[in-house]
Design a protein around this nucleic acid. Sequence first.
DNA 1: TGTACATCAGTGAACGCGCGTTCACTGATGTAC
DNA 2: TGTACATCAGTGAACGCGCGTTCACTGATGTAC
Lengths: 211, 211
Amino acid sequence: MSWKKRARDGAYHHGNLREALIQAARELIKEKGPAGFTFADAARSAGVSPAAPYRHFRDREALLADVAREGFVRFEAMLTTGWANGKPDALTAFNNVGRAYLAFARAEPAYYAAMFESGLPPDVNPELRAAGDRAFAVLRTAADGLVAMLPAGKRPPALMMSLHVWSLAHGIASLFGRGDAGRRSLPMSAEELLESAMLVYLQGLGFPARA
Amino acid sequence: MSWKKRARDGAYHHGNLREALIQAARELIKEKGPAGFTFADAARSAGVSPAAPYRHFRDREALLADVAREGFVRFEAMLTTGWANGKPDALTAFNNVGRAYLAFARAEPAYYAAMFESGLPPDVNPELRAAGDRAFAVLRTAADGLVAMLPAGKRPPALMMSLHVWSLAHGIASLFGRGDAGRRSLPMSAEELLESAMLVYLQGLGFPARA
DNA sequence: TGTACATCAGTGAACGCGCGTTCACTGATGTAC
DNA sequence: TGTACATCAGTGAACGCGCGTTCACTGATGTAC
């Protein structure tokens, strides 16, 4: 008992409070939305005095930005796993990136909200901007691989494709595919919706229906 | 001078405060986001005591819901104008609904934010839900008209099409196409992005490239 | 048309509350010798 | 290895502030006769 307590106290005491505050913020965002938590709230959840967070974050926005940045890093990792180095083939890999996008939004609504719905300008700091760009780059890479499948004269611009799919996935995620409550309901799952849209879209670009 | 003042005071005095509060809320949402205004703020902007709003709205959420409801009504009107009864042809009309979607998001960022980004559950009240459904129905009707152009065996489900385009337009609007500050920048306009995506998508469904 | 009364929208003062932020502080950890 | 000192993360008390909400009230508008 007192062991456990000491371990916790000790853990908070050097190096971990920063991370503990981010965890607390995630929890609070999940419950009440990105606007629904306060600096004091986060401190309380982390079991620490209201002045303690100032040692690690300039203000509430800086904390929120760090949640978002960390979110983008994990997002990038999830998209990268979905892509799987273009295996087993470029078309499947591209579709898997789309699936990973939605899976992330569903599994991590708090990160997702901090990343896209917190009202933070994407360039509130360079790290946040860079993390967001790196996540987008995964989609871009998958599109490059896919475009290369087509004969040289019939290749659509990969950047445009990436933006189309990013927008589509984001639209579906934020309208229908959220892990938390209060979203619109649907006659099909968000995953099916994305899959069908991408099928039609890729057909429009001249890709075969099946890989 | 005292005329003008009296006219204003009189206007606030019976019947208009409700509307004045909605206007004030819109202004504040535009400046600071849907989470960035308070009940007291709205009262102050409307030039009225902090207790006055309670005569018209149960609480802040009720006011926000009314902004969103009114937004959906105007949104529906704008989409309907875009559709133009399916004139000059179903394909053009469908595309115009998409353009109208984006135009609304750009022209009315405050309404748009209240409608889609305020964290309000869509069924916080039946009127809000109904207004949202009516707006979606315009897109649905446009899709019905378009689907009817294809031979009977090759018709995609219009509901699915509507959901695809709604998601795409919403994704583009919320990532890139906002009238207010702080969004991501793009190598092309949001309008071009939507147009190109819809062109590819409709080609994928078997529609001719040009009407 | 005029008078008496009811209704109702907005007032303004008051309250308790939690937030953001500051401050001098404490006590544990790291470092020099 | 031990001692002295510096550093640094977190404390806890304090503050001013604006918010949400309530209350008895006022004065203008609407209505009955």
